[in-house]
Write a protein that binds this DNA or RNA. Sequence first.
DNA 1: TTGTAGGCGTTATCAT
DNA 2: ATGATAACGCCTACAA
Lengths: 337, 337
Amino acid sequence: MSDPGKPTMSDVARMAGVSKMTVSNVVNNRVPVSDAVRQRVLEAIRETGYRLNVTARVLKSGRTGVIGLAVPDIGHAYFGHLATLVIAEARRYGLHVALEQTGAAEAGELDAIAQSHRLQFDGLILSAVGADPGTLRLPAGNFPVVLLGEQGFSGRFDHVLMPNEDGAKAATLHLIDQGCERVAFLGAGELDRLSVASRRQRGYLAAFAERGIEPDPDLMVPLSGFDLTSGREAGRWIADSGLGIDGALTVTDSVAQGVLRGLADRGVSVPGQVRLLGFDDIPEAACMVPSLSTVAPDHRWMAAKAVDLVAARIGGAEHTPAEHMAPFELKIRESTA
Amino acid sequence: MSDPGKPTMSDVARMAGVSKMTVSNVVNNRVPVSDAVRQRVLEAIRETGYRLNVTARVLKSGRTGVIGLAVPDIGHAYFGHLATLVIAEARRYGLHVALEQTGAAEAGELDAIAQSHRLQFDGLILSAVGADPGTLRLPAGNFPVVLLGEQGFSGRFDHVLMPNEDGAKAATLHLIDQGCERVAFLGAGELDRLSVASRRQRGYLAAFAERGIEPDPDLMVPLSGFDLTSGREAGRWIADSGLGIDGALTVTDSVAQGVLRGLADRGVSVPGQVRLLGFDDIPEAACMVPSLSTVAPDHRWMAAKAVDLVAARIGGAEHTPAEHMAPFELKIRESTA
DNA sequence: TTGTAGGCGTTATCAT
DNA sequence: ATGATAACGCCTACAA
């Protein structure tokens, strides 16, 4: 007795007394097959427990029907939400989405690209925050890549952009107009790097410029990360700093959520003593206490656009790379009332 | 000129003036290759932009090094968090994780299994909430599947279980011991189905039994979903119901987050007028205002165990399926003070 | 150290 | 309507 191994089309064909090709045709409902033969084949499939070997099919077609979505951290509410939307949009094209986690580091992003080749994705949507799009190395040929959320346009890929500057500017103006005189920006970084954070910080600065106010460098505070914990530390810091901060724009909603908590730790009321404004409009924002005012980019629009672009390239389109800026809305809620 | 197509080993071999096999050996660092030849091959690889076609290799080896992780909805904080942990654990085995979304429906879960075959995963970790483990159909052969978080043990798969009953019981006892006389359970379902919700509800009932208190059916309220929005509605309902509810255990932390907001909408204070307790200990729980008391299963333990089990089966282990119950801790925070 | 032959499981093409 | 043959790109086994 030899090891039976997984049954193949040949096994089915032999059992049904037909050729491999006929089995293939039955499995794929392709050319007409006589009812008698079809039944015999289906019967043989059942008996052998045969399952199509997709790898072999992929080897021939060169297509997997899978696109990668690489994000810094799926644990972050924003990316979880985004992923859900991308998956929904991809379904419209019959595309499957596999998620990669880059860890918000350049190495991870480069690896995601390498992996997307390894895993034979047909394309990749990359939410890059660490790597410079100008220097990203790609798999051979013109592999469909769409960059998401980052604003450093390289001219090499399609970019779906968030309205980082305009959104942050509108948000800051709102805080100023609400009467805040000491508005902080939480999540500051090096302005020369084209990170999400620096883009938003530029918007913050643009608002001050428009109002003819001199920004105070002490109010642009860097964070150890863009998560709840860093936010909480920042919230406590605001209370302890003695800088008289009465308004704050955070680099993300998750940070704002932490800040809210950090302020509560110190008994500081929002919006009473400090008005708080976030960025992203994650689903949790409306359910915080107080509910969080925030810059709300149209996430569905972004997901749809990104998928449309990869799908088009996968379909063979050869348009020159372009930027696509998502619309946004400033959502005013309790935290800046 | 003909379409060059993607370069293959043959292309590289031709350019380097060697055989395909030599190229293969260089690429895989296998048998010794003379330095001269190696250089020529590497040079040719660079020039052609050749990249290994993994599909072809998989067709021979039958292994992809990828496991699937199928969860109801990655947009939910809990699953996002879980995914992060599983990805980290899988890395220890050199395994890659691809995420699937099942939509919390049986159809989605069955599809996830079908897909994991389609995508040639080596194994699957399935967080099943809809399908009955007893009736799940598997890909051919003994495909490594580990069920996560569900408590209906089938005897057919390894299960990594959450302490649903014990956790909910401990939580409910805590509420009772804090002096709550009207403790509600938010997220009730049909007790006969072995869902996560019904398991937790059993724990809730067990606590009442232990204290010799008759539970009030009006206090076991079903929800339209296990998300923020349903929670918010439930919170308002608590305030409007006139049932005198002064304590509540929710089926998940996300629901509790919504409830917190719904109560705030009605000006009900937590824990002053209503004490609130969640389940899961998502990262957000500690940062809510007030911070959320919750049942905290050891997520890292669960992720590690699940990965260990699939990895073992992928490695050929043939142990009989078993249950593995995660340890938990009751985290007391402000919401039940 | 390098090359040749054959096959992994499927499908396109052309023939019957 | 069905079958034979030849790829798809790589790797194992063996030969030189």
